[in-house]
Simulated assay, not measured.
Amino acid sequence: MKNLLVSLEHAGDFDEIIDVRTPLEFAEDHIPGALNAPVLSNEERVLVGTTYKQVSPFEATRMGAALVARNIAHHLETTFSDRPRNWRPLIYCWRGGKRSGSVTMLFNMIGWQARQLEGGYKTYRRATLDTLVTLPKAFSYIALVGPTGSGKTRLLAALNTAGAQTLDLEALAAHRGSLLGAWAGVPQPSQKRFDTLLVSALRTFDPARPVFVEAESRRIGSIALPLALLDTFHQGRCVEVISNPEDRAAFLLHDYAHLFDDPELLKGQLQRMIGLHSRERITGWQQLVDDNRRADLAHELIERHYDPAYARSSRQHFVHLARALQWNFRPNDADVVDQAKALLAELDSSALAVV
Rank of each mutant, 00 (worst) to 15 (best):
G181Y: 11
L227N: 12
I31T: 01
C238T: 04
V39K: 07
T78I: 00
V186I: 11
E43L: 10
Q316M: 13
L24W: 10
E170K: 00
L76H: 01
D206Y: 01
R203N: 11
T22P: 05
N36P: 04
R248E: 05
L8H: 10
L253D: 02
A224L: 15
A353R: 14
K152D: 02
G49C: 03
R279I: 12
M105Y: 09
L8K: 08
D82E: 13
A215F: 05
A309L: 12
E170S: 05
D206L: 04
D13K: 09
D231E: 12
G119S: 07
F251E: 11
G49F: 05
V336N: 07
W87R: 08
K122W: 05
A208L: 13
A11N: 06
R304G: 03
G146P: 01
R218V: 07
D290A: 14
A11H: 15
I18P: 02
P57D: 15
Q316E: 15
Y141S: 10
G119L: 05
N36W: 06
V6Y: 12
I91W: 11
L253G: 03
E43N: 08
R330S: 13
L230F: 06
A298V: 01
L297G: 00
A309Y: 07
A37K: 08
Q188D: 00
L325P: 02
P210R: 07
A73F: 09
V48I: 13
L301M: 11
A143M: 01
A164V: 00
L67R: 09
N292F: 12
G177W: 00
T51H: 14
T232C: 13
L253H: 04
L202Q: 09
L155Q: 03
R323Y: 15
R115L: 11
W94C: 10
L202C: 14
W112T: 08
Y256M: 02
G177H: 04
